[in-house]
Amino acid sequence: MSELDIRNLSKSFGGVKAVNDVSFTVKRGEFLAMIGPNGAGKSTCFNMINGQLAPDAGEIHFERRNIAGMKPRDIWRLGVGRTFQIAATFGSMTVLENVQMALISHGRELYTMWSKAAALHRGRALAILGQVGMAEAADRPTRELAYGDVKRVELAIALANDPALLLMDEPTAGMAPRERNELIKLVKALVVERGISVLFTEHSMDVVFAFADRIIVLARGRVIADGNAAAIRENAKVREVYFGTGKTFAGAPA
């Protein structure tokens, strides 16, 4: 059964059709990669699914409910987590407080004015940080962290409300190859363990082909291919978009 069902989604900026009649689904517990060259419409797609942008046309069904045009905060409450291409965390808070903030929001305690925020949900926040391997750094200010660690904190924030769907826009951008593999391995493990569905974009082909259950390819705002790693490798249209004609992924750096 599908968790996320996207039907005929479109969005234009001025005269540019950034996303043009895109349809695809994400099944429950699926680890789905969305790839495509720069400007293909991946981030625009993400921003519509997560509510930062309202689509011009089309529907986005999440757990049988059309969430197109809803606000990000309402979509989050339905159980959609998100990490951004450029990591967005709260710089004036510690790593632990970043996760606590999400847990406070999840517990609908945002307008509580008397209790101390730093004492709330500590145990749960530490547990989540443990899962992403950041428990050691719990008391450090987020702004002091290396970028790869900030990405992990962001993942921890996104996991705080037990999302059913996780949207990860280039989760490994700016990471060294080894870090990159570790993070994706971690996410893959979460998918298997908790049954979370993950939609992610990624520029590193080795990561995509090694871990994704399925791959959809976007180019110039349209879906040009949808299938498993083998099928995408063989797909002529995909080759053309990435390499021009004649070359293959066989020669791509692995």
Binding site: K71, W76, T89, M93, T112, M113, A117, I157
Partner: peptide
């Protein structure tokens, strides 16, 4: 001062630090 240490004060700072992230975790 008490307000600043409360969840409400944290939510206010969260909105200042990163409105994008704050909205994406359910903060109006």
């Amino acid at each position: 001062r008490r307000l600043l240490f409360s969840p409400f004060g944290y939510a206010m700072r969260a909105g200042r630090d990163s409105p994008l992230r704050a909205e994406a975790i359910g903060i109006d």
